[in-house]
């Protein structure tokens, strides 16, 4: 059955090629960074937990040493323009991801249904690459040189989401959630519904900003405020408390550099000088939207 394993092999090979190309360009920091990522994708399951921890420390050491210089993502040298057929080539990946996601769910024997989208996305990338080679006839290394140009622009931000997920695991082990939840619960005036709603929704947004991810904040705020106060004491509708609470957290995701894949990576990919430029454009949507979520929860959650 094709699942994440095959996807990781493809990703590992790509990072290995990136490492090789970086070595050829004598960029040793990048070489080490991509080689460690390739190792993670190709052999991560065989390294053991401590081994993977050491691998992470290696990635951090390279990133913190300042050896990963941010590169410009612009095309170097001449662009060799083609007609509008280039759009068809660009659509191969999303089209394959779309069709594959729908189709693979019908073929659970062939593809792991839980990973249908990632498998389809990988297949789309390979298919588009094959068509690109036959149509555009680039030199064999060209797609990877061009891909590396974009990857170098992203740099260490590429692994920050994975690192934050790991931090969440350590927080869970240390019981951080219970303490934060207890504090948020203790800060509310006794018996105040609007106070509890505000603490829950704003707490979701704030803790999401720290963790870079609403998934880490959700269990904490549900334990501290959501279940004991909103659902038990005030008889809130659990579905609304959960769904709207999570979306209040998403408003926090729009506001934090910790959500690197959504906020820092696009700024890097677009070559923006201000790495927080995307967040600045999101503030004026995120804050009114947080208020809207609070209003939705207050008006419909306790009917």
């Amino acid at each position: 059955m094709i699942g994440l394993g095959a996807v990781y092999v493809v990703a590992g090979c790509m990072f290995l090629l990136f490492a090789g190309l970086s070595l050829r360009a004598r960029r040793f920091g990048h070489t080490l960074f991509y080689a460690l990522l390739a190792l993670s994708f190709l052999c991560g399951d065989r390294l053991g937990d401590v081994g993977n921890g050491a691998l992470v420390l290696g990635l951090v050491a390279v990133a913190a040493s300042g050896r990963l210089k941010r590169a410009s993502p612009s095309v170097a040298g001449n662009v060799q323009p083609r007609g509008n057929a280039i759009f068809l080539a660009a659509l191969i990946i999303p089209a394959t991801a779309l069709i594959g996601t729908l189709l693979f769910r019908l073929l659970p024997a062939l593809v792991d249904p839980k990973q249908a989208t990632l498998v389809a996305l990988t297949l789309g990338a390979l298919l588009a690459l094959a068509i690109g080679y036959t149509w555009l006839r680039p030199r064999p290394a060209t797609p990877f040189v061009e891909g590396l140009r974009l990857m170098d622009a992203i740099g260490w931000a590429a692994v920050l989401p994975q690192m934050l997920a790991s931090l969440g695991a350590v927080f869970a082990l240390a019981g951080v959630g219970d303490v934060v939840g207890g504090m948020a619960g203790g800060a509310i005036p006794h018996g105040s519904l609007i106070g509890a709603v505000l603490a829950y929704a704003i707490g979701m947004a704030l803790f999401t900003m720290v963790m870079g991810n609403a998934f880490a904040a959700f269990p904490v705020m549900v334990a501290g405020v959501g279940v004991p106060l909103l659902i038990h004491a005030h008889h809130g509708n659990p579905a609304i408390v959960a769904a709207v609470g999570m979306l209040a957290g998403f408003c926090g995701t729009l506001l934090t550099p910790m959500a690197a894949n959504f906020n820092l990576v696009p700024a890097a990919l677009l070559g923006l000088k201000d790495r927080n430029a995307v967040i600045r454009q999101q503030i004026a949507t995120a804050l009114p939207l947080l208020a809207a979520n609070i209003a939705l929860l207050y008006m419909f959650g306790f009917a």
């Binding site: 060799q80 996305l121 789309g124």
Partner: peptide, 18 residues
């Protein structure tokens, strides 16, 4: 989470071709 960067070689190649 990091698998999405698999699209970069194709995007990079197509960018080189305008």
């Amino acid at each position: 989470v990091t698998v999405v960067y698999l699209v970069l070689p194709v995007i990079g190649l197509l960018e080189r071709h305008g």
